[in-house]
Every structure is written in C-alpha cells, then in structure tokens.
Nucleic acid binder design. Structure first.
Lengths: 210, 210
DNA sequence: CGCTATTTTAAACGGGTGTTTAAACTGGCT
DNA sequence: AGCCAGTTTAAACACCCGTTTAAAATAGCG
C-alpha cells in the first residue's frame, strides 16, 4: 500500500478517536509505520491532511447521497420523513464496505469537524459539497411543506447534532447498553434507534413564538 | 476579586470557546491578569482546574434541578414530556443570573466535556452528580411509562447530544440565522426551538426491532 | 549500466505546553 | 519590631508540537 494511503488510514481512525487537535503527526506516522516527514511531503501540512481525510469519505459518499435524494425529489408521491432519512442511511452504511468501521469513523470525524478547529471544517464541507445540503433541504421540504425554511434550518441542525454527537460517543453508549440491558448493538442498531427519534423531532408540530 | 475566581472566570469562557485541549494555561492566566504559576498553586493541575470550572456550575445547578424534577415526580398528575423538559430549562436559564452568559457557557462546556479529553469529564459528572440523571429518568418514565428503560436510555442520550451539540455551535448557528432569515435570536430563542424537537423525539412511537 | 526524478530518512529547528522551583512580597499577629 | 503563613512572581524545567532541511535510498527510463 502506498505511503499516502497508509497515512490516511492511520489518520482517520486516530482523528475520529481523539480529535484533530488531540492527535499528533507523530502518533499518526508511527501508527502507519511511516516517517514523520512523509505527512508534510505528501500532504503539505496537517490541515491539508485533515481535508484529505474528509475528502476521501465525502467523495465516496456525496454522489450516492445526491442520487438517493434526487430520487425522492423527482418522485411524484409525497415522501415521508422516515423515507428521507433512510435515503441517508443506505449510503452511510455502505461506507462500511468502503472501509472497516467506515460509517462510525466518518460520523465521528464529522462531529470532530464541528467542534474542533473552530469550524474551519464546516466551512470546508459546506463550500466543497454544497449540493448535499441543498438536496437534503429540498427533500425534507417535500415531505413536510408546512415547515418554514427557518424552522427547517434549525431542525436539520438539531438532527445533525443528534447523529453526530451520538456517533462520537457511540462506543461508550454501546458499552453501557451492553452492561445495563444485555443488549449488544452495532452501529446499524444505534442508527435504527436514532431514526425514529430524529424523524419525530423534525416532524414536531409547529409552535409560534412571540 | 480573588485570584482563584479571576482564573475560574477567564477559564470557563476560554474553555467553552476553544475546548479544554485547545486552551493553554498561559492564555487563561494572561486573560485573568494573573501569574502563570497561580493555576498550579490554587488548583494543583490543569485537570483539577477543569473539574473546578464544571463544579462551580454543577453545584449551582444541581440542587435546583433536583427540586424541580422532584416536584414533577411527587405530583399526582401525569406530566407531559414538555413539562419535564421545561423543568430543566428554568434552572438552566437562571445560570444567566449566576454569571454573564452562564447558560450558554455551561452548555458549551458540557459539550466539550463529552468530546474533549476522551470522556473523563462524563465520568466525573455521572459519578459526582448521579441524582440529576436518576431523577430525570424517573420524571420521563412518569410522563411516558410505555417506553422501555432501554429505549429511554437511548432517547435521553440522543436528547443530551442534541442540546449539547447545538449549544456548542450555537454562536455559528445564530450568526447564520441572522444572515439568512434576518432573525436575531439569543440562547433562550434557540432553546425555545429545540424543546419541541427533543420532546417530539422522546415521544416518538415505539418501534420494534428484529 | 548511468542518469534523473521521486520518495524516504534522520536530524534539527523554533516555538508552545504543563509543571516546578526558589526567591520575593504581602498582610496580620504577638 | 519581628515573625510567619499565605500568596505572588520570574525563571527555568523537560517534553511535545508542526515543519524544514539536506543527505540517503529507491525507482523509472533511455
């Protein structure tokens, strides 16, 4: 395997686990059995490495996501919110074929991107992959047209938060569930439980504020 | 004002803003106009300072939270989920009297605690303030008794995630809402919008898994 | 083979980190 | 006044960070 890919493979696991700030290049390169300077040689800087790690996932995910959402947008029938969210799930779970534990790793990385590094990664994603956001918004609007654009903006970010945060601590939560309820879940199991939650949240009745 | 409090005041703003790992003791002490060594003199270590910052909020919050939830648990009438959540809101918003921007700062700190430092802070909170969690669980169980304990465990953690994550990025979200919708919100406004969402999420119909 | 371009390597660079030290200062006490 | 516990201070400590350098190794090609 190429040095570049060895670095990427080691980096995304460590980044997901300990955050971008919390992971040093020396940890990454020693995990990857690669010289320290290789990161700067192949990627230029740590910041560029972070972008490369995210891009590898987004480039895999974003076309599938767009086509799945396009299918919903072009259909005549009005979709349910659950359908819209499940359009997300399938491409997300396919990341497990792309890379071992790809789904949870990617979602954890997404969570890190929101809180670490003061949002430069959110900027990177929204500018590099804007279609994902607009298509998702369109699909939700079709499923729940009464919802104002602003209210939808908030509820989608709440949803983003729920998913991303859940995945960031999914390992700990799965451990607790195993101990307390003797119920062994995997990532797909957690997703199964979070979908009804977020769907109901987005579908919540409209309240009027003063 | 005492050196100890100057440090705490500077620390919690910086910690909330840039995370625990992302904030250096030198930033804190220069912001507080205090000598660098004062942190280790008064608190022992950075880790202990983090605990002290969180304890200051939790000691203020936890008694009020417990009595508000106890009121619900002891009442004869079955409460609604919205009521249970609003029992949280009032004590949380009172943190603004305790300290300027206390509510959002505390919630941001809570979010940092989940993702930074690999969950040592979650351990600290759940072991130091266990009553908050058990009382909350009791109140929800009273409002929605059909929900199994395990399902409730998951939905409460989803809720935790939604709140905490939303608050971590609340400044950025409020900025976007201002630009895109000409709607200037504060923290209370964001909370007003998130409550119906999480209440509907927790109240989602029960699904059966294979 | 021999030359060139690419890649890998060890070492060092400058700077930031949390923590510790020991000396200086402070205010209250007899 | 002298003393002393409590506090503040400047300086240094050892260590880790991301990045750069220049030499060594490797691979590709005429």
């Amino acid at each position: 395997m190429s040095t570049k890919n060895k670095i990427l493979d080691a980096a995304d696991v460590l980044f997901a686990d300990k955050g971008f700030n919390g992971t040093s290049l020396r940890e990454i390169t020693s995990q990857a059995n690669v010289n320290l300077a290789a990161v700067n040689y192949h990627f230029g800087s740590k910041k560029e490495l972070i972008k490369a790690v995210m891009s590898r996932y987004m480039d895999e995910l974003s076309p599938q996501l767009e086509s799945a959402l396009a299918l919903i947008c072009q259909a005549e029938r009005k979709p349910s919110l659950q359908e819209v969210f499940y359009a997300f799930i399938e491409p997300l779970l396919k990341l497990n074929e792309f890379k071992e534990n790809g789904t949870s790793t990617f979602l954890q990385l997404l969570g890190r991107g929101y809180t670490d590094s003061q949002g430069f990664l959110r900027w990177f994603l929204t500018t590099q992959y804007p279609d994902v956001f607009t298509n998702f918004t369109k699909a939700v609007k079709k499923a729940y047209p009464e919802l104002s654009t602003e209210e939808m903006f908030w509820r989608l970010h709440f949803t983003m938060g729920t998913i991303v945060f859940t995945m960031s601590s999914s390992e700990a939560l799965i451990d607790i569930a195993q101990n307390d309820f003797n119920n062994q879940l995997d990532i797909a199991g957690v997703i199964e439980r979070v979908i009804p939650y977020v769907a109901a949240g987005v579908a919540a009745p409209i309240t009027h504020y003063n």
